[in-house]
Simulated assay, not measured.
Amino acid sequence: MGRAFESVGEDPYLNGTLGAADIQGVQSTGTMAQVKHFAVYNQETNRNTASDNAVVSTQAEQEIYLPAFQDAVQQGAASSVMCSYSSVNGTAACQNPYLLSTVLRQQFGFGGFVTSDWGATHSTVASADAGLDQDMPGNDGYYGATLQSAISSGQVSQATLNTAVSGILTEMFGFGLFDKAPTGSPDQSATSGTDTSDALNLAEEGTVLLKNSAACCRSAQPTPRSR
């Protein structure tokens, strides 16, 4: 179902609890974690097209689609969030003020930064004003020089830019990215015998969360009734 393979489940509570724990583990190593895809990016039909418009009530959003993200940013303290390709009630997720401002920042108290998915930005002014802080490649130049021009012309306020930059830099300073010299290379890959063995073990151990065993079931035999 859509990008369900990138999640830890469909149940809002389980998804949020496991997701928050995973984020805590990642960020405990000094690496920023990014939560995606915010939000209501679940259906496969017309996915990643202009027809991918999720029409959903506010109640359904609050009860089903948003709780896991709330746990991710409140319990997990995720440094960043990625907005999705989908439109939600007719507005693209990466320029959706209800999702990025009302819910994420005001309701959840999120203090990190929001990144677009590749090709998920569809405007300059609407995206910046809604709370999109960072634009990834494949978005037809909506940020960069275009955003600079929008600020110069007064279409986007300097305060909006300052807020976006502040959120990004705060997380980068918080994770020590300016204090530690970069290491490694994007061309490097984990191909050693130990790395592949660890990856296989993690995949096998993570396949089954709960299982029956002989030890647990012997004590669960029914007790005969007394007459």
Rank of each mutant, 00 (worst) to 15 (best):
residue 1 M to D: 12
residue 2 G to C: 04
residue 4 A to R: 13
residue 5 F to D: 15
residue 7 S to Q: 08
residue 8 V to H: 07
residue 10 E to Y: 04
residue 11 D to R: 00
residue 14 L to Q: 11
residue 16 G to S: 04
residue 17 T to I: 14
residue 17 T to L: 15
residue 17 T to A: 10
residue 21 A to P: 00
residue 21 A to C: 09
residue 22 D to K: 15
residue 23 I to P: 00
residue 23 I to H: 01
residue 24 Q to Y: 06
residue 26 V to G: 04
residue 26 V to K: 11
residue 27 Q to V: 04
residue 27 Q to E: 08
residue 28 S to K: 05
residue 30 G to H: 04
residue 30 G to K: 09
residue 31 T to K: 13
residue 33 A to Y: 01
residue 33 A to N: 03
residue 33 A to C: 05
residue 39 A to K: 03
residue 41 Y to C: 04
residue 41 Y to Q: 07
residue 43 Q to R: 12
residue 45 T to A: 15
residue 49 T to R: 10
residue 52 D to H: 15
residue 58 T to S: 10
residue 60 A to S: 11
residue 62 Q to N: 10
residue 63 E to H: 13
residue 64 I to A: 02
residue 64 I to R: 06
residue 69 F to W: 07
residue 69 F to R: 01
residue 71 D to W: 03
residue 75 Q to N: 14
residue 75 Q to G: 06
residue 84 S to A: 14
residue 88 V to M: 07
residue 88 V to N: 06
residue 90 G to F: 02
residue 95 Q to R: 12
residue 97 P to A: 06
residue 99 L to Q: 05
residue 103 V to I: 13
residue 106 Q to E: 12
residue 107 Q to T: 06
residue 108 F to A: 01
residue 110 F to H: 02
residue 110 F to N: 03
residue 112 G to M: 00
residue 115 T to E: 08
residue 115 T to Q: 09
residue 116 S to V: 03
residue 118 W to F: 11
residue 119 G to W: 07
residue 120 A to P: 14
residue 120 A to G: 10
residue 123 S to I: 05
residue 125 V to T: 10
residue 126 A to W: 01
residue 128 A to Y: 00
residue 133 D to R: 00
residue 135 D to M: 09
residue 138 G to D: 01
residue 138 G to Q: 02
residue 139 N to C: 04
residue 140 D to C: 06
residue 141 G to D: 06
residue 143 Y to C: 00
residue 143 Y to E: 03
residue 147 L to G: 05
residue 149 S to E: 05
residue 151 I to N: 04
residue 152 S to R: 12
residue 155 Q to D: 02
residue 156 V to K: 02
residue 157 S to P: 00
residue 157 S to K: 09
residue 157 S to D: 06
residue 158 Q to M: 02
residue 162 N to Y: 10
residue 162 N to P: 04
residue 163 T to H: 10
residue 165 V to Y: 04
residue 168 I to V: 07
residue 168 I to K: 10
residue 169 L to H: 05
residue 170 T to A: 13
residue 173 F to H: 08
residue 173 F to E: 13
residue 175 F to C: 08
residue 176 G to I: 12
residue 177 L to Q: 09
residue 177 L to V: 08
residue 178 F to D: 14
residue 179 D to K: 07
residue 190 A to L: 15
residue 191 T to K: 09
residue 193 G to L: 10
residue 196 T to F: 10
residue 198 D to K: 14
residue 203 A to I: 11
residue 205 E to W: 14
residue 205 E to K: 14
residue 205 E to A: 11
residue 207 T to I: 07
residue 208 V to A: 08
residue 209 L to I: 01
residue 209 L to N: 11
residue 211 K to W: 14
residue 215 A to Y: 12
residue 215 A to G: 01
residue 219 S to D: 12
residue 221 Q to W: 15
residue 221 Q to K: 13
residue 224 P to W: 11
residue 225 R to H: 10
residue 226 S to V: 13
